[in-house]
Nucleic acid binder design. Sequence first.
DNA 1: GCCAACGTTGGC
DNA 2: GCCAACGTTGGC
Length: 140
Amino acid sequence: MAYWLMKTEPDECSIDDFARQAESPICWDGVRNYQARNFMREMKVGDSVFIYHSSCKAIGIAGTVEVVKEAYPDPTQENIESNRWSAVDLIFKAKFKRVITLNELKSIPALAKNPLVQKGNRLSVIPFSQTEWNAVHAFI
DNA sequence: GCCAACGTTGGC
DNA sequence: GCCAACGTTGGC
């Protein structure tokens, strides 16, 4: 059982999109970064994932989803035979009453070393320790 | 819209 | 293997 955070632009795929179809999983594809891809390949069914909204009005963690299908060839890649890129399937778990903002996340001591709050970091799939996960939940 | 920071590409 | 040029990310 592991914990993760995944960034998304809510225009593309938001926590509301997950909530709208809470019974059916969403294919998380289109990741084109090796470090992020490698983390996706480590994901196991049942892992918990924060959904982080970036490049929008309310930047921050908006809710949680869960891994329901482990890494498989990303259907959106050019040459699917190469299996260069991976996708996972995720299903809705919870939408927070309000977004936990980036400023709030920066104020959480347990997150000080997390790439999410470090300047210039562009990693879109980030592993969370249980301590970090719990520290975020304590904010809700 | 701006721009700093970062990752990738490709010539050498 | 180096590194300049380029494209993208993402906060502001």
